[in-house]
């Protein structure tokens, strides 16, 4: 064995163990501190759950407002992002001329690299601009945050849609052509259903990204206590912001425990979304490529 092989071997073993060890330690820490507080009180405090869920009584010492804020935000983000994202992906893979393809995919690549804080700054500038021109009473809030998050997750939607469609075998297209389908029919009845799981996987991935992002909502309207989301333009609470805020500003043991609980809940949410996305995309590959 030469020196270089030995050192690579050593490096590989060391770094694998280091990464696994640190990850394990981190998870064990979070679970041991956050696990015991998981339960009804974590979400609803001392408010009766049913009344809290219906919004009849406010929750002061629980995560429910932040969870509701995050879910509402995700819904709104997807309402903004899904149609343009999938449409653009379909257009890129099926219809775009080479020149359009070049410029669109360049724009998507550039957008994918934007730091999320810059997207938050964009939202902030946008609302200032709107205040000076069209909406003198506009302010940061749910709608603006969802719009910026939608811009942030658009690239992953577009790329997932495009690559799911491009992974389909040519024989599908040929068969549809031979049966005399028009282009629109081929797309609607053959290609989209065939690639559906992959596209859905992309949506899950985008959801996961939107759920965990803190920098954007920090600048576009997330606050530490706002109660349940009150409307499209009101300030809101969100899980990632609650975690960030707790780490910096917790006042007592109970708040800190709630922070651990929130971290664990967010971890489960984004882990679950990623797992779903991975399963869906793997199904697609198995079906059309016969991988494994």
């Amino acid at each position: 064995m030469r020196k270089r092989e030995m050192s690579l071997l050593l490096l590989s073993r060391l770094s694998a163990l280091l990464v696994l060890g640190v990850l394990g330690g981190l998870l064990a820490f979070l679970i041991s501190r956050g696990g015991p507080v998981l339960g009804k009180e974590l979400f609803f405090g001392d408010t009766p759950p049913l009344e809290a869920l219906l919004g009849l009584r406010p929750v002061w010492n629980g995560l429910w407002p932040a969870v509701a804020g995050t879910l509402f935000l995700l819904l709104l983000t997807m309402a903004f992002a899904v149609l343009p994202g999938i449409g653009c992906g379909v257009y890129l893979s099926c219809f775009a001329s080479p020149r359009e393809k070049y410029w669109l995919s360049l724009a998507v690549d550039l957008l994918a690299g934007i730091p999320s804080i810059v997207m938050g700054l964009f939202g902030f500038l946008l609302i200032i601009f709107l205040r000076r021109t069209l909406l003198p009473r506009g302010s940061t809030g749910m709608l603006l945050a969802a719009f910026c998050l939608a811009l942030l997750v658009l690239p992953s939607l577009i790329v997932a849609t495009r690559s799911s469609l491009e992974a389909l075998p040519d024989s599908l297209l040929l068969a549809a052509e031979a049966l005399g389908f028009s282009r629109g029919q081929t797309l609607r009845h053959v290609l989209l259903p065939a690639a559906g799981q992959g596209i859905l996987g992309g949506v899950m991935l985008a959801l996961g990204r939107a759920a965990e992002d803190t920098a954007v909502i920090m600048l576009t309207g997330a606050v530490a206590s706002a109660g349940l989301p009150g409307g499209l333009t009101s300030k809101f609470e969100a899980l990632p912001f609650a975690i960030y805020y707790t780490a910096a500003q917790y006042a007592d043991r109970a708040e800190l425990d709630r922070g651990y609980g929130a971290a664990l809940v967010l971890l489960c949410l984004s882990g679950g979304l990623l797992f779903l996305s991975w399963r869906l995309q793997r199904n697609l590959e198995r079906r059309w490529k016969g991988v494994r």
């Binding site: 981190l26 820490f29 979070l30 965990e212 803190t214 990632p240 975690i243 922070g259 971290a263 797992f275």
Partner: peptide
């Protein structure tokens, strides 16, 4: 899948 803010918190 681990959110950045969770890394930070831990």
């Amino acid at each position: 899948a681990i959110p950045t803010v969770v890394y930070g918190f831990a």
